[in-house]
Nucleic acid binder design. Structure first.
Lengths: 211, 211, 211, 211
DNA sequence: TATGAATGAGCGTTCATTCAT
DNA sequence: GATGAATGAACGCTCATTCAT
């Protein structure tokens, strides 16, 4: 955690804010949320404690912004997928790929978001709207799928909730276990389950497994 | 919150511990996690602050045990379901029913566990092993279903993860939104999605929409 | 609180100081003393925080001057009364009238000076010398009265102290209670008490009660 | 400021509170109100900062109690005077004597109450009711005097206000100037002015001064 | 074993003041 | 002179934990 002061003193004002956010992220990663204090953030940023308050009204605002910054790109990417002109199945798969790859690519960045329970909680809190957004997006995809005849006429909302819960949980588990499973494998497995369910169907019975 | 002292003074040590746990639960419900202090717990239990430390090494241990107590019955019930002699589909449905009903019946008790972010996080922490247990149980059910030919030969572990994530998330959402949806409806919807997936099947095509 | 900057930028330095003092007064009235910060004053004056320090060595000096400004006119008016060529009784009454009217006319201005304990204290501090001045002036009036035979040969200094204390206290009380008593009534009552005291006199005895 | 810890550790709980109050008084005297911090009080009392909060909810409560303790005895003594069975003139004189002597005898204790503007302000604030009490008592005395024919039928309330203001101010002035004037002299002078006023009376003219 | 006063590290926050630009 | 970001000492307050009784 090198001193930011020299780097920042002559920077444009905005850069200092970035520096503090980065410092907060560093502290979060290094010490976890419950040991995140303004003093440590300031120290990590190489600035005085009081200076933090020139850029963030209070601790809550700082931590929230750390999280918002981290998740922003994924949200935008999600928006682009939903609004694209592909079929529902493709969109669904793209969405899963986005989630998995985003969390994998930024594992270094998101690790703490899920590993540290305190942070995870805060994220979920702040993400309540984000969660709602995610659900909404999956719902759109399911609606489209149903409309276009690719999906059964299920309750799109419930399906969306289920998928979001399942995906989040799977990602969490992978991060927790440190398992480095190929993303595509996870995606295909989830797609298979989401599309086909676990139940055996009469038609399939004969086709796939015969006797 | 009547004084527990008289009741407990001559009781076996275990009863005192029960009283403290109950007091902690009361405080948690009344004031939320972030206002839970040892002092308040002691006061609610009608004992002295220091006495709490005769039964719990520290605050963390106390709070963890509060949660463990809350979830214990459900865990045992889950064990009985898995070890029963029913079909996988019935076990799966029973399991979902257990989860939903448990959280519904104890809504007053669990509300705070999910509403208060700090508590939720703590619960998830303690539940990491509980989650693992839950996954294991669902995995057993899926294994049974596959073995007995009721389920497709999916990856039982992945399916279990998915279901646990989905169910937890749905319950959380319901608690958060305060929605009082009929349990059976939720269960049936989830069962339908888990068993049948969202994707259209060839066999259905003809049945449902004709050509 | 419009920006003073444009108005003041090209003004003589003195005008800027006036602007800051006025801004400080505005903040004082609007937010009370304990919420008076240099930053708010600067903002109200439409200038930068640092600029305040080009005109006032520190906060203390600024606040003191705000008070001095407020009381200046009354002091000058007091001087004119004492140096006038009237009798002691008339001067005494004029003095009381000045005090009462000054505080009444500027009630909006002085209210906070007395209502807010922190400010009141600060004013009293700064007024210690002002009090001395006031006492001195009343002492002159009493000396004159004694010399010219209008007053008994009392200790002029003690009488002056007494009167100043009494008048200040009465004004304070009125401001505190928010009472809107007619000034003339207060003045006449005080004059009566100062001149005649409360004690019964031989001459009165016969007049008022007969024997 | 000797360590109170040894002395107090074995004392009854109440003694510790006394010790803190005394320590606060010491700090107040030594450093003035605006430098009174909880930390300094704790240090002066030889205890830990947090311990102060075992006896006082917050700083405000502590300081208020310091003041209340200081003035309590005088208030009670005042009550005994008013309720006594003497004439109004005697009661008035006794009251003045009480005030002067109380502040003189406890000069060491009250010095700060008047010398330090911050404290004075706080006292006046807390004393608003005390002031009201003092006024009420003088009013009773004046009422009695008027009823019994010793005083002119003046406005008892106004006279009381005037006297309280005058006496407080005179005492303040003496404390401020450090002047050690004989109390009796001050009392007699005030009594003379209060009873007789400053104005010359026709009847007196001949009697007292002749021509 | 129960007590609860004492502890003391720690926290979030404020704000008068400085100084490089 | 004007600026305002940076400073950093200071403050009131909390509370898990200890320990002498």
């Amino acid at each position: 955690m090198s001193s930011l002061t020299e780097r920042c003193r002559k920077m444009v004002g905005n850069a200092m804010k970035e520096g503090i956010l980065q410092a907060a992220l560093d502290v979060l990663r290094a010490e976890g949320f419950e040991h995140l204090t303004i003093e440590k953030v300031a120290e990590a940023a190489g600035i005085a404690k009081g200076s933090v308050y020139n850029h963030f009204r209070n601790k809550q605002e700082l931590v929230t912004q750390v999280f918002e910054r981290s998740i922003e790109p994924a949200i935008e990417a999600g928006g682009r997928i939903v609004e694209g002109s592909f079929g529902a199945v493709q969109k669904l798969e793209a969405m899963l790929r986005l989630w998995f790859s985003h969390f994998s690519q930024h594992r270094g960045l998101f690790d703490f978001l899920f590993r540290d329970p305190h942070v995870r909680e805060l994220c979920f809190t702040s993400q309540r709207s984000k969660s709602a957004l995610a659900i909404e997006r999956f719902r759109h995809i399911f609606d489209q799928g149903i409309r276009e005849g690719d999906f059964r006429p299920v309750n799109a909302m419930s399906a969306a909730e289920m998928v979001v819960g399942a995906v989040q949980f799977c990602i969490e588990r992978q991060l927790e276990s440190g398992e480095q499973r190929p993303i595509e494998s996870s995606i295909q497995e989830l797609m298979d389950l989401i599309l086909g369910g676990v139940g055996r169907r009469e038609g399939q019975e004969g086709q796939n497994y015969g006797v």
